[in-house]
Write a protein that binds this DNA or RNA. Sequence first.
RNA 1: GGCCCCAUCGUCUAAUGGUUAGGACGGCAGGUUCUCAUCCUGUAAAUCCGGGUUCGAUUCCCGGUGGGGUCACCA
Length: 488
Amino acid sequence: MNVKTRFPPSPTGFLHIGSLRTALYNYLFAKKHKGTFLIRVEDTDRERYVKGAVESLIRTLETVGMSYDEGPILVDGKLSEKGSNGPYTQSQRLPIYKEHAQKLVEQGSAYYCFCSKERLEELRNQQQIAKLQTKYDRCCLKLDPEEITRRLSAGESHVIRLMIPGGETTFHDEIRGSITISNSEIDDQVLMKTDGYPTYHLAVVVDDHLMGVTHIIRGEEWISSVPKHLALYNALGFPLPSFAHLPLILNTDKSKLSKRQGDVAVEDYLAKGYLPEALVNYVALLGFNPTGDREIYTMKELVEAFELSKVNKSGAVFDRTKLDWMNGQYIRAIDPERLFMQAIPFFGSAATLPDEQKKKILEVEKERLTTIKDLEEHIGMYVSIPDYPATDLVWKKADARDAMLHLTNLANLLETTEATTFEHRELIESTIKQYIRDNDYQNGNVLWPLRVALSGQTQSAGPFDLLWVLGVEEGMRRITKAIDNLHT
RNA sequence: GGCCCCAUCGUCUAAUGGUUAGGACGGCAGGUUCUCAUCCUGUAAAUCCGGGUUCGAUUCCCGGUGGGGUCACCA
C-alpha cells in the first residue's frame, strides 16, 4: 500500500504540544511504511491568521527533526513549496473549494442559506431554552430557485450548507474500532462562509482527496465530525481514507492540554532549554509504547517501532517531571558538539569565554542540568569568583588552620606540577590524589577547601573538574585569594 | 443536557482467560562521594464499582460510576 499522511496546522504562530504529537505520529506512520508525509497550511480562518506563522512553523518542524515530502518550505528565508499536489496553503485554493461546493449544490447535496448570524443566534437561544438540540432549522432549504437566484444576483450575503442525510453513520477507526453516530446529531454544516472561504470540513475533505492522503491521523476531538466528512466523501464520490483518532494530551487535572495551566507550545519548551530530541521522545511515548520497559528512543528507532495498533485509547497527562528526567538523560548522553550547539543561547554572562572553555563547562556541568537553561545558574562562578565567607573554606571535620595549611601546600604543589598535567582531568585528579595519599591526608581536608576556593560555593562541581575548566593560572589566583581570605 | 470516546500504581505505561500484575518518572530508605549532582541498590504504591460468561476473570459481555471530547460562518 502506498501510504500518505498529512499534518494540517492552522497558522497561529506556535506549535502546540498536542499538534507536535499528531504531526509526529503522522510522520512516524508514513516513514514506517515508506510512504509520504505532507504539510498543509489550514488558514481558512482569516481572523486567526498570524503573519509569519508559517515561517515559524517550518523552522520548528525543522528543529524537532521532522522532515516532510510535500508542503511549504523556506528558500533563502522566503516562502515556497515542494510537491506536485500544491498549492499547500488553503487560502490559495479558494477556486477549488468553490467549484466543489458548487457541484454539491447542483446535485442537491448542499444548499444556499441566507440566514443572518443574528437569526441563527436567536434560533440557538430558543432551542437552548426549550432544551432542544441546537441545530439549523433548514429554513433556507424551502426557498424556491427563483428567489435564490434573485438574492444571489442581488449580492446578498450567504453561505452554503451541507445537507446531512438521515440514518446513521458507522465508520472504522484504526485505534478505536467501529464507531456509530446517528446523523440526527449532526447539524447542516456550513461549507462555504460568507467571506468566500471554505470551512475546515469542506477544505479538509477536498484537499485530502486531491492530495492523495490515505490515512487521516488526528486528535480525538474530531471524532464527532467524522459523519460530516463521510457525508462529504459520499456526496463528492471520493473513496474513503483510513481514520485514526489519537487520544488527547491532558493537563494535570485531566482536561484537554491548554494554555493557562502552563506552557503548551513547543517553542516555549525549546526556549526553556529542553532538547528537541527529548521533547520528541517524551511526546512520542505519550499514548504509544513499543515495549513497556524502554524509554529512550531516537527518531529512527521510533519509526521502526511505530504501529497504530500500539497507540493507546485513553488520554495521557503531560507530566513535566518525567520530561525533566528525560531531558537530563539526553543532556548527559548526547554528542558534546550537538549539546554545545544547542547550548549557545544559554551561556549568558559566559558568552564571551572561548568556545573551548565553554565546551569544558558543559562537559562538567551537564551532570547537574535538567534543562540547558539551568546553565545560567551554574555559569557565573566560571566567569568570576563570587564573594564568599572565609568560613565556607573550612571542612566540617576540620578548622580554619587546617584549611590554610592545605591550601598553602596545594598552591605549592600546583606551582611545581607540569603545565601539561592541567590539560587532562584524569591527570589533575591523580596528581592531587597521589599527594593526599603520600601525606596520609583525608580527602575532605584537602578537597573541600580546594573546591570552595575554586568555586566560591559550598555546592559545586568537583575540584579536579574546576581546575580543568579554569586552568592553573586562574586556579592559583583563586587559591591565593582564598588564603588571603582566611587571613583576614 | 444530547451524542461520542475512555478507564492498570500519584503520572507515563507492560502483560495475560490462570503471573508474586512487570518497567519508567516521582516519593521514601540506603550506598558511592570533599559538597551538589550523576550513578547504583532496596522499598511503598494500581487492575473504578456491580452483575454475568467461565473451573478460573484485571482481561470477554452488560449495567453503573467517574473522567474527557463534541454540539460555531474556529480549526
